[in-house]
Amino acid sequence: MQRPNSLGHLSVIIIFMMVMILPLLGTLLYSISTSWSSGLLPDGITLKWYTSLFADHRFLQAMMNSVLVCLGALLLTLVLVVPTAFIVFYYFPFLKPFMNFIILLPFAVPPVVSSVGLLQIYSNDVVTLTGTPWILLGAYFTVALPFSYRAIANNMANLNLQDMLDAAHLLGASTFRAFFTIVLPNLKTGLMVSLFLSFSLLIGEFVFANILVGTRFETVQVYLFNMKTRSGHFSSAVVVSYFLIIVLMTILAGQWGKKQ
């Protein structure tokens, strides 16, 4: 039902937006100001912080590292979770409650706790994964798992999997073929939405990246943390750049979501 938006509700939302946008607005202004020592507005406007940021090799490398490790982790998540969700829904539906339970584990075990164990397990003479981006792939898989599994599972539940697979079999397709020609294309929209949202989640991850890898493979979060002694204007430019990625990802997710 389409209601006219009431003034009361409208003002609540506008106040909410205005308050929540303050830290962002402050950071944005700070990142384009020459200096801001006093007064309502900065002393002057400049893009020099951005030019020096994008001339900083370390920053570009960190951006690259972040994007690489996030894409890698998402690819791993996709390759592992999609077949698993399909197998659970099609072959072993009685496992659904069990899956719903185990994907809660990442919520109960925060990254800092997992890091304690991961540091012990994967930094010895036999396996040395710490200090390399490889360990982040596994760790980020656990971060993205609950969200991507839920998204994929919800989409699967909306498909009439049993009948569609039966129909495909009768028409001569193997299960393998049916998975690629029917199941996967029908999950595409849901997968894209969850990919974009998971990307913004992962690119904001700091704890794993800092403890397990640190400066040896600096992500943008670790870079920002290590830049804390540089000028606030410079850090602001980093924050704004990072937030633009989130904005982009959220908008892309929204666009895909509308296709459904």
């Binding site: 009439n160 569609m164 129909a167 495909a168 009768l170 020609t181 294309p185």
Partner: peptide, 20 residues
């Protein structure tokens, strides 16, 4: 196996492939 029997079936739920 089902796909070699030469049998076709129409389902109550139609089971059309929504992506096609």
């Amino acid at each position: 196996p089902a796909r070699q029997r030469g049998i076709a079936m129409v389902f109550q739920s139609y089971a059309l492939f929504p992506n096609m």
